[in-house]
Amino acid sequence: MIEVTGLTKSYGPAAHRFLALDNVSFHVASGTVFGLLGPNGAGKSTTIKVLTALSRPDAGRCIIDGIDLSMAPLAIKKRIGVVPQENNLDRELSAYENLMIYGMLHQVVNLPQKIQQALEAVSLWEKRETTVNHFSGGMQRRLLIARALLTEPTVLFLDEPTIGLDPQIRRQLWDVIRKSRRAGRTVMLTTHYIEEAEALCDMIGIIAAGRMIALDTPDNLKKTVGEYVIDFADGDGNLCHIMTRTREEAYEQAKTLSNGVTIRRSNLEDVFIKLTGEKIE
């Protein structure tokens, strides 16, 4: 379980203060996947950094599995696994050595056995003696996930876990995340891939300019802004969209428009555009 209340974080000197998180609050139930969706610089990574004790907030309260982060950070660190956005593996050490050091830092018992299980889970056991700088981007990502799962955390944080990966590897990682949820873990991930959020998340938070502007299930978010979308070109050839609550309403509206009209179900990208006025890049 993750409970965040009034989280605020700013950077820089007082004269040029940048507010990265502005009074952000949300709740993630145990055993669910929560996706934080937003464009670059929205505050997604900052939220993860604060929740994983890497960054101190200016204000706010973070409770993970009933433990207050500000009161007992070491207890929280024992419960969480983190897959960072940037690769922070030791590139000159082998896959096995990376996991061994990590496991020792986290006092993992039966470490050799756990390392084998973790590497097998991401199909890297055969490459255990290879140094990380000889791994492809996808293999490094898989190793980061194996490392995060090594400690059998109750809460898993993934910051843009599939960024820059090809679709096949991305889907492999989605399977790992789904397995984590089935194992009863609470998962929080940030992404700006709409299909990733749709495929994995039970709850979505949309964050823009450091503020949580929407928080609900994917279906409810779509219902809120309209379940159907009419795509059409205006007189100047620009692509336009109209969102409607029902299919019938969409057909009625489409009749009034000229050629090149399509009607489709809305997706989270439509929700995002409607709420923020910008596209996720």
Partner: peptide
Amino acid sequence: YFKTFQVLVQAPIN
């Protein structure tokens, strides 16, 4: 640059 220090900060050690 390598961000490996994050691993130490996020570990349950003082």
